[in-house]
């Protein structure tokens, strides 16, 4: 029996497909990025090796740092606005005990199943200065209502609102599942001991949700770093580069500015930042647990 379980040929045949996909679609491309990151390749013609010049250039590339700052802003928006609201909604739904639970969960999650392409264009219309929904709301409250929300100054906040809005249901769902997994006996015991709702939330729900919150915060930071598609369609980083994000920046550098080599060097830094962020957050949370 052990023999059947350690048959090398069988093992190889079972893991080969997965490894082939990994090598061909993830590892080889990243190695290629590392290579092109050291060149001044424009996309056409010959590439010549320029050492660390791309990385030196990146240090002074204002748009690169704006991208990082925007990811930071988005992460803060997720953690300080979206998640608290999601937790509040999850707790209230849980308190309703049944009835409208399915309805609200369904409604909150609905934007998540709609393609980012549609969401981005829908919000472009909502922000439209001529017939947009948001300006019409402003008019109801007595404003002029011809604000160009995606213009300079307000654009980054408009983008953040779309992203916070879009992911709200996802966060809510995960927090709700976390709350459901808490043993109801604990609440009953606390109620007998005379703890009111506020106390029960602060002393039971929040501490027991800690692992869920930690996972969610990690995911939020990573997805803030990875953000590309909504921004690509909504503003493509503009006006100027005010709403630039890293992935969009590297894409633009390679395909619009014809700095394919430089784009790849951003790719490499992008991968490193994502891996580092994941590891650092995991480390912080693990230490706190211990």
């Amino acid at each position: 029996m052990r023999k059947a379980y350690s048959n090398k040929a069988v093992i190889a045949s079972l893991v080969a497909p997965g490894l082939i996909f990994f090598f061909f679609a993830i590892l080889v491309p990243i190695c290629l990025s590392v290579y092109y990151g050291f060149t001044d390749f424009s996309g056409l013609g010959a590439a010549s090796f320029i050492g660390l010049d791309n990385y030196k250039f990146m240090l002074h590339d204002k748009d690169f740092w704006i991208s990082l700052r925007n990811s930071g802003l988005l992460a803060i928006g997720f953690v300080c606005i979206q998640h608290p609201l999601a937790i509040i909604a999850a707790v209230i739904i849980d308190n309703m005990q049944g009835k409208a639970e399915g309805f609200f969960r369904c409604v909150y999650f609905l934007p998540n199943v709609i393609s980012v392409a549609i969401i981005a264009y829908l919000w472009k219309f909502i922000y439209d200065p001529n017939f947009g929904l948001l300006n019409n709301i402003v008019k109801i409250f007595g404003g002029e209502g011809h604000i160009n929300w995606l213009g300079s100054g307000t654009a980054i906040w408009s983008v953040l609102i779309v992203l916070i809005w879009h992911g709200f249901g996802w966060g809510m769902l995960i927090y709700y599942t976390g709350i459901k997994n808490i043993d109801p006996v604990l609440y009953e015991a606390a109620a007998i001991d005379g703890a009111d709702k506020k106390k029960r939330f602060l002393l039971i729900t929040l501490p027991l949700m800690k692992p869920v919150i930690q996972v969610n915060v990690t995911l939020a930071v990573i997805s803030a770093l990875k953000q590309m598609e909504t921004v690509y369609l909504l503003t493509n980083g503009g006006p100027g580069n005010e709403t630039q994000f890293m992935a969009n920046h590297l894409y633009k550098q390679a395909f619009s500015a014809f700095k394919y080599g430089y784009g790849n060097s951003i790719s490499v830094v992008f991968v490193i930042i994502c891996i580092l962020a994941t590891q650092v957050l995991n480390m912080i949370f693990r230490e706190k647990e211990a």
């Binding site: 990994f22 993830i26 491309p29 290629l32 590309m228 894409y251 490499v268 991968v271």
Partner: peptide, 23 residues
């Protein structure tokens, strides 16, 4: 082998756009 494949979770999809296009 499992760790290697799971590593893929940390790699941002969009970092492969440029090289994959080339390939």
């Amino acid at each position: 082998v499992k760790t290697i494949i799971l590593l893929g979770m940390m790699i941002p999809i969009h970092a492969t756009l440029l090289p994959n296009y080339m390939i």
